[in-house]
């Protein structure tokens, strides 16, 4: 069970919002140096305010733009335990699963949630709850392979455990 405090963001949060290219490229060999700039134009000093386990709740087209995987990696490094949104850009979605950051597509929760609400996510049963508001929503369960990647903590951890990625494993 994932449980954390909500950070409510709007539609179209891009990977540039999460980490701007000018910081990514000036500190390309140092992920930690990028932390102070994460979401800085959306929530000033986000890196100081965020706490371990917090959940981001976005709107439409979350993670649009660049393929930079630093975006989900930095969110995870800051302690974000999941991202819920009405829809995701496909590269961000794949990147997040690959690094073991759950990405949940839901429609009601993004409508009703506010920053500071308590959010719970039950991945195994595909349910997300806004505990503060007392509202629950079912989401489409992950395919088995993707669920195993998330449970392992990412594709790298999965490969360390099983030797190969699930799609190579299934063809062997």
């Amino acid at each position: 069970m994932i449980r954390g405090r909500c950070w409510k963001l709007g539609d179209n949060i891009s990977t540039d919002h999460i980490i701007s290219g000018k910081y990514k490229f000036s500190a390309i060999d140092n992920l930690e140096a990028m932390l102070p700039h994460v979401l800085e134009e959306v929530i000033p000093e986000f890196y100081k305010k965020v706490a371990k386990g917090d959940v981001i709740v976005g709107g439409k087209n979350f993670g649009k733009g660049s393929s930079r995987e630093h975006a989900p990696r930095l969110l995870k490094l800051l302690g974000i335990s999941a991202v819920i949104a009405k829809s995701f850009a496909h590269i961000f979605y794949r990147n997040a699963i690959n690094i073991g950051l759950p990405v949940i597509v839901a429609q009601t929760i993004p409508e009703v949630s506010e920053t500071e609400d308590i959010i719970e996510i039950d991945l195994a049963n595909a349910v997300v709850r806004n505990v503060t508001k007392g509202i629950e929503e079912k989401f489409k369960p992950f395919p088995k392979e993707l669920m195993m990647i998330l449970e392992s903590g990412g594709i790298v951890e999965y490969i360390k455990k099983y030797g190969v990625p699930p799609w190579v494993r299934s063809t062997e």
């Binding site: 393929s67 930079r68 995987e69 590269i91 794949r94 990147n95 690959n98 690094i99 990412g154 594709i155 790298v156 490969i159 990625p165």
Partner: peptide, 9 residues
């Protein structure tokens, strides 16, 4: 278009 981990795999 993919991210770095996808490309690595």
């Amino acid at each position: 278009g993919v991210g770095s981990t996808d490309a690595a795999i």
